[in-house]
Structures are given as C-alpha cells and as structure tokens.
Design a protein around this nucleic acid. Sequence first.
DNA 1: GATGCGTGGTA
DNA 2: TTACCAAGCAT
Length: 428
Amino acid sequence: MARRGGSAGPVLLAAWLVVLPAVWAACSRDGRPSLWGAVPVFALLLAEGAERVVARVFFAPVLPERLSFVITSSVKTPPARSLLDWYDRHRRVLPWRSGPGQTADPYAVWLSEIMLQQTTVKAVGPYYHRFLEKFPTVQALAAADRDDVLSAWAGLGYYSRARNLHACAQKVVELGGFPNTVEGLLTLPGIGAYTAAAVAAIAFGVPVVPVDGNVERITSRLFAIEEPLPASRKKLAALASGLNADKEAQKRPSDFAQALFDLGASLCSPRSPACGLCPWVAVCAAHKAGIAATLPRRAPKAVKPVRYGAHFLVIDAAGQVLLRKRPEKGLLAAMTELPGTPWRTEPWSTEEALIHAPVQTEWQDCGMVKHVFTHFTLQVTVYAARISRFSNQAVQEGFLAPATGVDALSLPSLMLKCIKRGMKTLAT
DNA sequence: GATGCGTGGTA
DNA sequence: TTACCAAGCAT
C-alpha cells in the first residue's frame, strides 16, 4: 500500500485484527458474540478509511468472491453524487453519446468504444461519422466486404481492431443482437475486460466500472497508490470496482462510467490535474499528500530499437503506381504497401535494397522516412522511378492503382509518407 | 506477465 | 527533438 511510512499499512491492519474482535467480544453479552457486538465493529470500520483501503488492496484480490465483497463493500467510496452533479454540468457532447434521457444505441456505443481504444477522441470523430454513413447498422457492417472495412479504417491504426470489428459484427448478427451482459460481451472478438464493461454500462445500464487509463489514473490518485504500473493494475482494478458502490452511482451506471472518463480527460489529467476544480478533491489521498500530478507511476520503458527498410515507388506513363498487400498476420496485417525490403536491424546498402526492387530501372534515392511504431522506430529509404509500362511479371505479386487517388485512400500512414516523399523527388 | 500492435497531439 | 501517451486486446 502506498502510504508514506511504507510498512505502516500491514502493521495497522494487524492491530485492527486484534482490536476488532476485542471490541466485538466486549460489546457482547455473556462472552458470546451477538448482533449488537457487530455494531461498534462496523462503526469503527466505517470511521477509518485507511485500514479499509489496506484491507481492500491486500486481501480483496486473494479472497473468494463472497468474502472479497464483504471487505470491498466496506471500503469508503468517494461520493458518486458529487461526481454526477459535476458531470451533469460539464459533460462533453460527443457524437456517440446519447443526450440526457435518451437510450444509447448498442451499435454506436460498441463502434465508438472499439475506435477509442488507445485512440484520442479527436482522431476518432471523422472515422466514426464515416463508418456510420457507410455501415449504418451492425447488419450492414457484417454484410460488408472485409477489405472495405479495412479501407475505411486506414489511418486510424491498430488494424487488428478493424478485422475484429468485422468478425464481431458477423457474430452479433448471428446471435441476433449484442449480448447485454459483461460475460456475454467478453466472448466477442476485439472485446476485452474494459470494452465489455463499457458497453454493458453505457448501452445496457449494467452497474459496472470500466477500467481504462482514465480510471486507473483517477483511482491511483484517489487512493495514493505509489506502486508503478503495470504491476499495480490488479490493485487499481479492485479499488476502481468499488467506486460505484453507493446508491447514486448504481442508479446511473452509464453516466457514472462516462463521468469518470470526462473527469480523467478534463480535470484529472495526466500532467497537470486541476485539483482545485475536482468534485473529489476532498477525498483524494494523492492531493492530500501533494503527489497527485506524479501518479500513476510507471515502470521505466525499454528503449525503442531502430529497424531499417527500403520501399519503391514506381509510376508508369499512365500514372499508375505498383502496390501490394501485406501478409494476413503481423504488423499492418492485410494492409496495402509499396513493394520493398523486409525490415531488419541493420541498414540496407543500395545494392542490397535493389535486389528487392519490383522492376529493373534507374532508381532515384529519395532519402529517409522515419516512422515510430509502438515498439520500434523504422527508417525507410524511399526509391522512386518512372517507367513506360509495367511488365506482367512486375504486376504479378501486386496490383496497380492510379497515383492521384492513392494518396488519400486506404493506406497506413507510413506508406502515405513514403509515397509523398517519392512523388516529391519525381516532381523535381 | 510480457510483448506486439499505429497514429497523431502535446509539452 | 524527444518523450509521453490516448475510452486496450490478443497471444
């Protein structure tokens, strides 16, 4: 437990384990435990927040569910009413969010949740509208060609989401609709613990707390958890699951979940939280300790390795470029790319790279394009050339597309950068 | 539990 | 420029 003083938590907890039974016994008649003896015990539990936090953090995760509930339900929760009042005044208006009193559309909620995984609200907006227009219902999405779905997703990143989206839509249509429970939602492709809880709460009013990055941050601050992520993830989830314990939250599961998102996005932000405006400032342990802005702590990240590759932009007299499709699995799976070398840790000499060129011609070196993936940085040397026409052999492993239309359509951002670089060189 | 998987915005 | 990181999931 992340208290200043370090080991005080377990010691105090041990003290309570002695004190509580003693109080119970003292308040019971004839030395036998009675219901009345439980009253002062509960009063003590309710009065002392810190020990309940210790109990939740240390014991709740390892106890059977029934016992765990007894402990976690006794943990003092921040007042949902304050948060909901704040939300009613300051809630963001978002395209996928239904107005006050309106019923949420499960399809819209699910689609937005998938798009919002590790992706900012701002980036999602245009894609969300485009998808609703192209695929107005889950039936339309299920019936669409997978490549059309991938196309519509191009540029948004994490492309397995698009493949799972399509597969999930088909499964939902088979089922006759979205499951309305966390367990049911968890069986669908692309839906994990967070998304299942989010859809259940927002679309179906199930009283669960979806634990995303926002909620982890809020929780780590509320309870001043100093243990770094990702090791602290289980503790944070256990603590977060109790945030909606009181009646006010139970009555409005959808609003409560989204209120946490809005709190995390606007006030309880990563770098400089606006604690002065926060509805929970009075119950925030990190604020009390003056460490809110430093939480959650994170384990140091491994350094990103650099990989190298080369890609080729070749245009014929008709203005067509040669493209190909990436393998079904792995990085940028099933997406379109320029022909090129594999990506490896050693730089490619020109002679080496040209072995992988799609045609034999006079190539112009267009310089390097740098692209940062989650776990490595890629340096791509771009080569460009104009030829009169493509041989059948050159087209065999790819396909042709008009250069003018390619620029904005259905390509990963890395490839857009490469094409832009190549075109610039060819134009000079 | 660690790793692989994109992209764009911000300080 | 670098570093961080955003409504995570699958393996």
